[in-house]
Write a protein that binds this DNA or RNA. Sequence first.
DNA 1: TTGCCGATCTTCT
DNA 2: GAAGATCGGCAAA
Length: 228
Amino acid sequence: MGPDVATARLPREFYPRPAYEVAPDLLGCVIEHETADGLVAVELTEVEAYAGDADPASHAYRGKTARNAVMFGPPGHAYVYFTYGMHFCVNVVCGPPGVAVAVLLRAGRVIAGGDLARARRGGRRGVPDEPARAIADRDLARGPARLCQALAIDRDQNGADLCDPASPIWVRAQANAPSRAATAATIKAGPRVGVRMGAEIPWRFWTANDPTVSVYRPHASVGHGKAR
DNA sequence: TTGCCGATCTTCT
DNA sequence: GAAGATCGGCAAA
């Protein structure tokens, strides 16, 4: 249907910019992952910018470690991390090589491969053969861990090159994307979700009035990590 | 709808 | 040893 330009990956040059500039530009773009089970595509509706060693909320704030090494590498790659003992989250690495800035993909709308996404989201961890739960379309990729589950993103995708034509995972713009000016009018910005330090920086960007945007939650510092 | 709670384990202190 | 860029279930309003 669409011409090649509709499915072209975002070029490498899209990424080496400050994360707070790349982040809003990603809204409306589509992340796709092709596996043996099929293709799932998610139109991004919510993202967050993280600015490396200058940002106390970033995983890179205290320098390079084994976990965050990908963020210090070249732009246009996927930084996937495991958190809370059971969830994966995915970022796109931005900025020039060596500068650990990235954009966390927080939520989106599944626009292709809905059945596959629902099947992946249906079974609970450790509960095989459980029938798929009735998950609303809006909830398929509503949240960073849900988005990863719908797209089957895990450790194996950490470091994946989103710009390599041979890579099974990529990000593209939409053929019918509205003008930059029209898009800007529908973009909202506010504090990032679940962060403690740097909580006042408005680097969460989302599409206004979109049901697939996750609900805002402040950092759960108290009450977590219960004593014992 | 909001709010609390437990699950579960990697990473860094 | 503690905290964490989270989520789903359940209760209450």
